[in-house]
Protein backbone atom coordinates (compact mmCIF):
# COMPACT_ATOMS: atom_id res chain seq x y z
CA UNK A 1 0.00 0.00 0.00
CA UNK A 2 1.38 3.39 -0.85
CA UNK A 3 1.82 5.95 1.89
CA UNK A 4 -1.16 7.73 3.34
CA UNK A 5 -2.09 11.29 2.52
CA UNK A 6 -4.19 13.82 4.33
CA UNK A 7 -7.98 13.66 4.18
CA UNK A 8 -9.88 16.92 4.43
CA UNK A 9 -13.19 18.38 3.35
CA UNK A 10 -13.22 20.59 0.27
CA UNK A 11 -12.24 23.24 -0.69
CA UNK A 12 -8.59 22.27 -0.82
CA UNK A 13 -7.24 25.64 -1.92
CA UNK A 14 -7.53 29.16 -0.58
CA UNK A 15 -7.47 32.62 -2.12
CA UNK A 16 -4.56 33.66 0.08
CA UNK A 17 -6.33 36.73 1.42
CA UNK A 18 -5.81 37.13 5.12
CA UNK A 19 -6.80 39.47 7.91
CA UNK A 20 -3.15 40.41 8.26
CA UNK A 21 -2.91 41.20 4.54
CA UNK A 22 -5.99 43.41 4.71
CA UNK A 23 -4.70 45.26 7.76
CA UNK A 24 -1.32 45.69 6.08
CA UNK A 25 -3.11 47.30 3.13
CA UNK A 26 -4.93 49.68 5.46
CA UNK A 27 -1.64 50.65 7.09
CA UNK A 28 -0.11 51.29 3.65
CA UNK A 29 -3.12 53.36 2.63
CA UNK A 30 -2.68 55.53 5.73
CA UNK A 31 0.98 56.18 4.97
CA UNK A 32 0.44 59.23 2.70
CA UNK A 33 -1.76 61.02 5.21
CA UNK A 34 0.60 60.18 8.07
CA UNK A 35 3.51 61.67 6.15
CA UNK A 36 1.39 64.71 5.27
CA UNK A 37 0.39 65.12 8.92
CA UNK A 38 4.02 65.10 10.03
CA UNK A 39 4.97 67.59 7.33
CA UNK A 40 2.10 69.90 8.27
CA UNK A 41 2.16 69.63 12.04
CA UNK A 42 5.81 68.80 12.66
CA UNK A 43 7.72 66.12 14.53
CA UNK A 44 5.35 66.36 17.46
CA UNK A 45 2.76 64.68 15.24
CA UNK A 46 5.18 61.80 14.64
CA UNK A 47 5.55 61.43 18.39
CA UNK A 48 1.78 61.21 18.82
CA UNK A 49 1.62 58.56 16.06
CA UNK A 50 4.44 56.58 17.66
CA UNK A 51 2.91 56.65 21.13
CA UNK A 52 -0.56 55.65 19.90
CA UNK A 53 0.83 52.83 17.77
CA UNK A 54 3.09 51.44 20.47
CA UNK A 55 0.46 51.72 23.18
CA UNK A 56 -2.26 50.09 21.09
CA UNK A 57 -0.09 47.14 20.12
CA UNK A 58 1.41 46.98 23.62
CA UNK A 59 -1.94 46.98 25.41
CA UNK A 60 -3.33 44.26 23.17
CA UNK A 61 -0.22 42.12 23.68
CA UNK A 62 -0.43 42.68 27.42
CA UNK A 63 -4.14 41.88 27.58
CA UNK A 64 -3.64 38.63 25.69
CA UNK A 65 -0.70 37.76 27.91
CA UNK A 66 -2.56 38.39 31.16
CA UNK A 67 -5.77 36.68 30.07
CA UNK A 68 -3.76 33.81 28.54
CA UNK A 69 -5.37 34.26 25.14
CA UNK A 70 -3.76 33.55 21.82
CA UNK A 71 -1.51 36.44 20.84
CA UNK A 72 -3.27 38.45 18.12
CA UNK A 73 -1.09 41.53 17.61
CA UNK A 74 0.39 39.81 14.57
CA UNK A 75 -2.83 40.43 12.64
CA UNK A 76 -1.89 44.15 12.63
CA UNK A 77 -5.40 45.26 13.59
CA UNK A 78 -4.16 46.85 16.80
CA UNK A 79 -1.62 48.81 14.77
CA UNK A 80 -4.42 50.04 12.49
CA UNK A 81 -6.44 51.16 15.51
CA UNK A 82 -3.42 52.94 16.97
CA UNK A 83 -2.59 54.74 13.76
CA UNK A 84 -6.19 55.76 13.12
CA UNK A 85 -6.50 57.06 16.67
CA UNK A 86 -3.34 59.13 16.31
CA UNK A 87 -4.55 60.61 13.04
CA UNK A 88 -7.71 61.71 14.83
CA UNK A 89 -5.83 63.60 17.56
CA UNK A 90 -4.32 67.07 17.49
CA UNK A 91 -0.52 67.13 17.36
CA UNK A 92 -0.20 69.04 20.61
CA UNK A 93 -2.11 66.58 22.76
CA UNK A 94 -0.29 65.47 25.93
CA UNK A 95 1.27 62.08 25.36
CA UNK A 96 -0.19 60.52 28.51
CA UNK A 97 -3.61 61.29 27.08
CA UNK A 98 -2.64 59.40 23.91
CA UNK A 99 -1.75 56.40 26.04
CA UNK A 100 -5.05 56.51 27.86
CA UNK A 101 -6.92 56.87 24.58
CA UNK A 102 -5.12 53.83 23.16
CA UNK A 103 -5.87 51.86 26.30
CA UNK A 104 -9.54 52.77 26.05
CA UNK A 105 -9.68 51.77 22.37
CA UNK A 106 -7.89 48.45 22.76
CA UNK A 107 -8.84 47.23 26.22
CA UNK A 108 -12.30 48.65 26.80
CA UNK A 109 -13.74 48.75 23.28
CA UNK A 110 -11.98 45.80 21.66
CA UNK A 111 -10.49 43.23 24.04
CA UNK A 112 -13.20 43.21 26.70
CA UNK A 113 -15.76 42.48 24.02
CA UNK A 114 -13.83 39.48 22.79
CA UNK A 115 -11.09 40.89 20.60
CA UNK A 116 -10.96 41.33 16.85
CA UNK A 117 -14.30 40.91 15.13
CA UNK A 118 -16.31 41.04 18.34
CA UNK A 119 -16.33 44.75 19.15
CA UNK A 120 -19.65 46.52 18.64
CA UNK A 121 -18.18 49.91 17.87
CA UNK A 122 -15.05 51.14 16.15
CA UNK A 123 -12.23 51.29 18.74
CA UNK A 124 -10.46 54.36 17.32
CA UNK A 125 -13.69 56.32 16.84
CA UNK A 126 -14.98 55.48 20.30
CA UNK A 127 -11.68 56.33 21.93
CA UNK A 128 -11.70 59.67 20.16
CA UNK A 129 -15.21 60.43 21.38
CA UNK A 130 -14.18 59.39 24.88
CA UNK A 131 -11.19 61.75 24.70
CA UNK A 132 -13.33 64.59 23.35
CA UNK A 133 -15.51 64.30 26.40
CA UNK A 134 -12.71 63.64 28.87
CA UNK A 135 -9.89 65.96 27.85
CA UNK A 136 -10.09 69.69 27.18
CA UNK A 137 -6.98 69.48 25.04
CA UNK A 138 -9.08 67.85 22.34
CA UNK A 139 -11.43 70.76 21.75
CA UNK A 140 -8.75 73.33 21.01
CA UNK A 141 -7.01 72.29 17.92
CA UNK A 142 -3.46 71.68 16.90
CA UNK A 143 -0.69 74.20 16.65
CA UNK A 144 -0.10 74.21 12.95
CA UNK A 145 3.40 75.18 12.02
CA UNK A 146 2.67 77.42 9.14
CA UNK A 147 -1.06 77.32 8.97
CA UNK A 148 -4.12 79.04 10.34
CA UNK A 149 -3.98 79.01 14.10
CA UNK A 150 -6.98 78.24 16.20
CA UNK A 151 -9.91 75.95 16.14
CA UNK A 152 -10.88 73.70 13.27
CA UNK A 153 -12.32 75.69 10.38
CA UNK A 154 -15.83 74.50 11.13
CA UNK A 155 -15.88 76.75 14.15
CA UNK A 156 -14.24 79.59 12.28
CA UNK A 157 -15.99 82.43 10.51
CA UNK A 158 -14.04 82.21 7.31
CA UNK A 159 -13.00 79.01 5.63
CA UNK A 160 -9.53 78.29 4.22
CA UNK A 161 -9.28 78.21 0.43
CA UNK A 162 -10.08 75.00 -1.43
CA UNK A 163 -6.42 74.47 -2.24
CA UNK A 164 -5.55 74.75 1.44
CA UNK A 165 -8.30 72.27 2.26
CA UNK A 166 -6.89 69.83 -0.29
CA UNK A 167 -3.30 70.15 0.87
CA UNK A 168 -4.19 70.31 4.53
CA UNK A 169 -2.00 73.12 5.85
CA UNK A 170 -4.55 74.40 8.32
CA UNK A 171 -5.69 73.56 11.84
CA UNK A 172 -7.16 70.22 12.72
CA UNK A 173 -6.19 66.76 13.82
CA UNK A 174 -3.06 65.14 12.39
CA UNK A 175 -4.80 63.06 9.76
CA UNK A 176 -7.96 64.90 8.87
CA UNK A 177 -6.68 67.93 7.01
CA UNK A 178 -4.81 66.69 3.94
CA UNK A 179 -7.69 65.57 1.73
CA UNK A 180 -5.35 64.80 -1.15
CA UNK A 181 -3.42 62.21 0.86
CA UNK A 182 -6.66 60.74 2.16
CA UNK A 183 -7.94 60.37 -1.39
CA UNK A 184 -4.75 58.64 -2.50
CA UNK A 185 -5.12 56.19 0.39
CA UNK A 186 -8.78 55.67 -0.43
CA UNK A 187 -8.04 54.92 -4.06
CA UNK A 188 -5.39 52.42 -2.96
CA UNK A 189 -7.94 50.65 -0.76
CA UNK A 190 -10.45 50.58 -3.62
CA UNK A 191 -7.88 49.15 -6.03
CA UNK A 192 -6.84 46.53 -3.49
CA UNK A 193 -10.53 45.76 -3.00
CA UNK A 194 -10.24 46.25 0.71
CA UNK A 195 -13.18 48.66 0.64
CA UNK A 196 -15.93 49.40 -1.87
CA UNK A 197 -17.12 52.82 -2.98
CA UNK A 198 -20.66 52.73 -1.62
CA UNK A 199 -20.09 53.77 1.97
CA UNK A 200 -17.63 56.65 1.47
CA UNK A 201 -19.60 58.03 -1.49
CA UNK A 202 -22.92 57.87 0.36
CA UNK A 203 -21.36 59.46 3.45
CA UNK A 204 -19.53 62.27 1.69
CA UNK A 205 -22.40 62.82 -0.76
CA UNK A 206 -24.93 63.17 2.03
CA UNK A 207 -22.78 65.71 3.87
CA UNK A 208 -22.37 67.65 0.64
CA UNK A 209 -26.06 67.73 -0.26
CA UNK A 210 -27.13 68.61 3.28
CA UNK A 211 -24.54 71.41 3.48
CA UNK A 212 -25.59 72.70 0.07
CA UNK A 213 -29.18 72.99 1.25
CA UNK A 214 -28.20 74.62 4.53
CA UNK A 215 -25.82 77.10 2.86
CA UNK A 216 -28.40 78.42 0.41
CA UNK A 217 -26.93 76.41 -2.45
CA UNK A 218 -23.52 78.06 -2.03
CA UNK A 219 -21.55 75.41 -3.92
CA UNK A 220 -18.08 76.48 -2.81
CA UNK A 221 -18.99 76.78 0.83
CA UNK A 222 -20.66 73.34 0.77
CA UNK A 223 -17.54 71.89 -0.84
CA UNK A 224 -15.36 73.49 1.83
CA UNK A 225 -17.53 71.98 4.53
CA UNK A 226 -17.17 68.53 3.02
CA UNK A 227 -13.40 68.87 2.71
CA UNK A 228 -12.96 69.78 6.35
CA UNK A 229 -13.75 68.44 9.78
CA UNK A 230 -12.71 64.87 9.27
CA UNK A 231 -15.40 63.85 6.79
CA UNK A 232 -12.93 62.19 4.42
CA UNK A 233 -10.86 60.30 6.97
CA UNK A 234 -14.08 59.26 8.66
CA UNK A 235 -15.86 58.16 5.51
CA UNK A 236 -12.93 56.38 3.87
CA UNK A 237 -11.05 54.87 6.81
CA UNK A 238 -13.16 54.81 9.96
CA UNK A 239 -16.69 54.08 8.79
CA UNK A 240 -15.51 51.33 6.42
CA UNK A 241 -14.18 49.22 9.30
CA UNK A 242 -15.46 45.71 8.49
CA UNK A 243 -16.39 44.74 12.00
CA UNK A 244 -18.64 47.71 12.66
CA UNK A 245 -20.24 48.37 9.28
CA UNK A 246 -22.65 46.31 7.18
CA UNK A 247 -21.25 43.89 4.57
CA UNK A 248 -23.72 44.35 1.73
CA UNK A 249 -23.74 47.18 -0.81
CA UNK A 250 -27.14 48.49 0.26
CA UNK A 251 -26.18 48.22 3.89
CA UNK A 252 -23.14 50.36 3.20
CA UNK A 253 -25.23 52.95 1.38
CA UNK A 254 -27.63 53.10 4.33
CA UNK A 255 -24.75 53.42 6.78
CA UNK A 256 -23.22 56.22 4.71
CA UNK A 257 -26.50 58.10 4.43
CA UNK A 258 -27.13 57.86 8.16
CA UNK A 259 -23.62 58.87 9.11
CA UNK A 260 -23.70 61.84 6.73
CA UNK A 261 -27.02 62.97 8.08
CA UNK A 262 -26.00 62.72 11.74
CA UNK A 263 -22.72 64.51 11.00
CA UNK A 264 -24.63 67.47 9.57
CA UNK A 265 -27.26 67.50 12.31
CA UNK A 266 -24.53 67.72 14.92
CA UNK A 267 -22.62 70.32 12.93
CA UNK A 268 -25.63 72.60 12.46
CA UNK A 269 -27.69 71.96 15.55
CA UNK A 270 -25.41 70.38 18.14
CA UNK A 271 -22.99 71.64 20.74
CA UNK A 272 -19.90 70.18 19.11
CA UNK A 273 -18.50 71.80 16.01
CA UNK A 274 -17.51 68.40 14.68
CA UNK A 275 -19.86 65.46 14.27
CA UNK A 276 -18.12 62.76 12.20
CA UNK A 277 -16.97 60.63 15.12
CA UNK A 278 -20.32 60.78 16.86
CA UNK A 279 -22.09 59.96 13.62
CA UNK A 280 -19.93 56.88 12.96
CA UNK A 281 -20.30 55.72 16.56
CA UNK A 282 -24.06 56.04 16.32
CA UNK A 283 -24.20 54.14 13.03
CA UNK A 284 -21.91 51.44 14.50
CA UNK A 285 -24.59 50.80 17.07
CA UNK A 286 -27.26 50.60 14.38
CA UNK A 287 -25.17 48.27 12.21
CA UNK A 288 -26.60 44.95 13.46
CA UNK A 289 -30.05 46.20 12.48
CA UNK A 290 -28.88 47.50 9.11
CA UNK A 291 -27.32 44.08 8.52
CA UNK A 292 -30.65 42.41 9.13
CA UNK A 293 -32.55 44.80 6.89
CA UNK A 294 -30.12 44.61 4.02
CA UNK A 295 -29.23 40.94 3.69
CA UNK A 296 -28.74 39.82 0.13
CA UNK A 297 -31.83 38.54 -1.55
CA UNK A 298 -31.32 34.80 -1.68
CA UNK A 299 -31.26 33.39 -5.22
CA UNK A 300 -34.07 31.01 -4.43
CA UNK A 301 -35.92 30.40 -1.22
CA UNK A 302 -38.31 27.62 -0.43
CA UNK A 303 -35.93 25.49 1.58
CA UNK A 304 -38.66 24.52 4.05
CA UNK A 305 -40.54 22.02 2.00
Amino acid sequence: MSSLTKLTVSPHIHSGRSTKGIMRDVLISLLPVTVAGVVIFGMRALLVVAVCLLCSVGFEALFNLITKKEQTVGDLSAAVTGLLLALNLPANIPLWQCAIGAMFAIIVVKCLFGGIGQNLVNPAVTARVFMLVAFSSMTVSAFPVDAVTGATPLAAETMPSLLTLLLGNYGGTIGETCTLALLIGGIYLLLRRVITWQLPVAFIGTVFVFSLLMENLDFLRALSLVLSGGVFIGAIFMATDYVTSPPTAWGKVLFGLGAGLITCLIRYFGNYSEGVSFAILFMNILTPYICQWTRHKVFVTGGNK
Binding site: G117, P247, T248
Partner: peptide, 10 residues
Protein backbone atom coordinates in the same frame (compact mmCIF):
# COMPACT_ATOMS: atom_id res chain seq x y z
CA UNK B 1 -8.50 33.23 12.84
CA UNK B 2 -11.45 35.21 14.16
CA UNK B 3 -14.21 36.40 11.82
CA UNK B 4 -13.75 40.08 11.07
CA UNK B 5 -17.23 40.44 9.57
CA UNK B 6 -15.79 41.64 6.28
CA UNK B 7 -18.74 40.19 4.37
CA UNK B 8 -16.57 38.55 1.71
CA UNK B 9 -18.51 35.29 2.17
CA UNK B 10 -21.93 36.77 1.57
Amino acid sequence: TACIRCGACT
